[in-house]
Design a protein around this nucleic acid. Structure first.
Lengths: 205, 205
DNA sequence: CCATTACTAGACCATCGATCCGGTCCGCGT
DNA sequence: ACGCGGACCGGATCGATGGTCTAGTAATGG
């Protein structure tokens, strides 16, 4: 009836990545297996390996797709505003896909990540700073903040705080303050410290 | 002749953790399997599960052992010096065991980690700062810095820089500067910015 | 019409974390 | 002195995974 058999749309790398992202969003890193991914794409697991060399490739591609969601700041006269916008967007994208925080221990060599890193380099170098040093400072801070936030938000804070209160003798400060707090405010404050500390001209430490 | 049969010393949790740490140091996270760990302890894999609930427990214990290597700073009149010492030791211990950086995406609830976190809380709170906020800012920065350093140092920078130079048109700043740089200096500089920004009295952002 | 390329799938392999079940050794109460 | 129960041990095994082998089928260009 239809011009082609309508059962299966063509399998493409884009479809694989999109489905992997959906699966990761729904079930996290542990839920992504090549079999389940193939099943959701209505194909066999072997077929995936025609488009992809290893599962690591899938993760790399999915992670770079997350970076693709980060908007590149427009033109700013203030480099600090541009950097802050980029870091805020960077963090927001990673937090939208919490699984991504747990696989950040891999080189970010995808085109989306590279494009944003290059933008960061250009912005900071253009302001008279040591580009790599300033860029690493900022992005390291973002990565660490996201990883820690995702890690601790996964826990049931009620149980954790109770655990700490039982050991108040050993950990008085932790028991007193608890572990929950305003992640957004902490991130913004620390980012502000870093940006304020970077003064063009004294580029190197 | 000997009081007991000398073949096998008793298997204890401490021996398991110590051997796991050695195995991780030698072969990384991928090299740690329950079978191989048992083999090195001259026992069967099943036996490990009498002392340990899951493999995750082994990783948690090994990671906390790494934190145990971090020296607690002595008494300082300057809270900034104390915090800097702790963060430097924290970073050094993680870098001594690069595998640890890749499993930092888990709650640090071991006694060694908690003891140091509590020390950090106390130091910062005692200085009139918002303890949790300041502590998270600092430790997030340390975690991110270590993870990124380990991640990028694993790569062959020569190949990576060549890869970038081939794409200099797309990533001009990256191609110009390359990715290698002085990790220690970058870390120290950024940590200085964070510490300088934390002014007691204006504890909250 | 055919052959080459793009693509698909089922069976299969080695390995992993974890468990079942059947043992062995040691300390303690009697 | 004894024996009994819990601490401890290990071979076989389970279900699942990442990845490959082999054998195909659909489309395309000569």
């Amino acid at each position: 009836m239809r011009p082609r058999k309508d059962a299966k749309p063509r399998l493409t790398l884009d479809r694989i990545v999109a489905e992997a992202l959906a699966l990761l969003d729904e079930e996290g890193v542990g839920g992504l297996t090549m079999r389940r991914l193939a099943e959701r794409l209505d194909t066999g697991s072997t077929t995936l390996y025609w488009h992809v060399r290893t599962k690591e490739d899938v993760l790399d591609l999915a992670l770079d797709a997350v970076f693709g969601e980060v908007p590149l700041p427009g033109d700013h006269d203030d480099w600090r505003t541009a950097a802050r916008d980029l870091m805020d967007g960077w963090r927001a994208a990673l937090l939208r896909h919490p699984w991504s925080a747990t696989i950040l221990d891999r080189p970010l060599m995808g085109p989306n990540a590279l494009e944003r890193t290059d933008f960061l380099y250009r912005t900071l170098s253009g302001a008279g700073l040591d580009g790599p040093q300033a860029a690493y400072s900022l992005s390291n801070y973002v990565m660490g903040s996201v990883i820690m936030q995702v890690t601790w938000q996964r826990r049931d804070l009620h149980d954790t705080d109770a655990f700490l209160r039982e050991r108040a003798a050993s950990y008085p400060a932790l028991a007193a303050h608890g572990l929950g707090h305003d992640w957004d405010a902490t991130f913004a404050t620390g980012l502000g410290y870093l940006l304020r500390g970077m003064t063009p001209g004294s580029g190197e430490g």
